Amino acid sequence: MYLYNIVVGIIFSSQIGVGVFGNSLFLCCFGLTLFRSNRSRPMEPIVVQLMLTNTIVLLSQGCPLVLFHLQKGYFLGNAGCKMVFYLHRVGRGHSICTTCLLSVFQAATISPSHSRLGKLKVRILKFIRPLCLLCWTFNMIIEMNAPMYITESRSVNSSHQGGLDLLYCHRERAPKELTILHSLRDIFFVGCMVFASGYMVFSLYRHHQRVHHIHSSCLSPRTFPEVKATQTILLLVSIFFTAYCISCGLTLYKVYAISSGTCVVIVATFIALCFPTISPFLLIHRVTQTSKSCCTCW
């Protein structure tokens, strides 16, 4: 069992270290790019928000598990559990909102000028920063009641009935109204994300059909960067959606299963942290301007 705790601690330590390094590297590259060009693209604030949110999720969800397995005990207490879980919930909710905004605004960017979405393109892009701030405020308010249902681990206080054992803390069953509110938020933003992704796939297919009969020298130089950015965001959304569905499925299994070990929580947390770990490296690799800035810096 001692070896098991060490292995789990090393795995999550490595995942957190790689993820925090990737998000920090992307933010540094973004700062250098902004300093060199003295201007930012419309959707770059959303990407910066996503990198900051990834860091919060990695630290608030992964670090407690690392310390729990390496220290072999409960260390947070009631106050620590409430604070860490609140940061985790806000970061998780903001990650869903930010990824949704990224896919919706990219869908608006590549939409034809004569379409309804294309006509609203300029107006929509002006609301990026206010919407980012609104997402932070919305998630901070909607998760205000979350710390009320977090206590020390069930192993410490055996009076807890039901809920979800997070190993380092215990989450009691929240009222149905609060659960429904959180579920509606997730369903709405994930639904918008999927709809925008489907629209982008359809737009890329139509673009491929149009340019199939046109010589590449006749294409605008801006065509390929927009297509590449759209493909990158589609890949990001696919990774997020896959990790989200698997993590939610494992969490529901842990809640409603009659007997389930701690491995379910560990696997669900590892999968949930895959997106904030992978996404910065994907953006650094696929976004042309950021990659060139990093190469120039090195």
Rank of each mutant, 00 (worst) to 15 (best):
L59C: 09
G31E: 13
T99V: 11
I239V: 08
I187M: 12
K126W: 04
M51H: 02
Y205D: 06
I141C: 12
C295A: 13
S40Y: 09
P175E: 01
K119S: 07
L70G: 05
S24N: 08
P130M: 03
Y253T: 10
V47T: 08
L178K: 10
I233A: 00
S40F: 09
C192E: 02
F189H: 02
F270P: 02
T242I: 13
V201C: 06
T290I: 12
P225S: 06
K176G: 09
Q289T: 15
L120Y: 02
F275T: 01
F224N: 08
T55L: 06
V194R: 00
H213Q: 12
H114K: 13
A107C: 13
V211I: 15
L25P: 01
K82C: 05
H182R: 13
D186L: 10
T98Q: 02
G9H: 03
A108K: 05
S279D: 03
C263A: 15
K72M: 11
L235K: 10
F270I: 09
T223M: 11
S279T: 11
Y86L: 11
Q15H: 08
L70K: 06
V48S: 05
C97I: 14
C135Y: 01
I16L: 12
M148D: 13
W136E: 07
M83C: 13
I266R: 04
N38I: 09
L25W: 07
P64W: 02
I11C: 07
Y168L: 07
F35A: 15
K121F: 02
C135H: 05
P175M: 03
V264T: 10
T98F: 00
G62F: 00
L102V: 04
V57G: 01
V156M: 14
H114N: 14
I187E: 06
M144S: 15
I266Y: 03
F26Q: 06
E177C: 10
K119E: 06
C263H: 15
R129T: 12
F270D: 05
F127V: 13
C192G: 02
V194P: 00
N54I: 04
F195L: 15
L250T: 00
C169L: 04
N54P: 05
C81K: 02
H160S: 07
H285P: 05
P112W: 07
T98E: 01
T55F: 03
N23T: 10
H213N: 14
C297P: 04
S24Y: 10
E44V: 09
S203M: 09
L120H: 07
W136C: 11
F270Y: 12
Y149R: 09
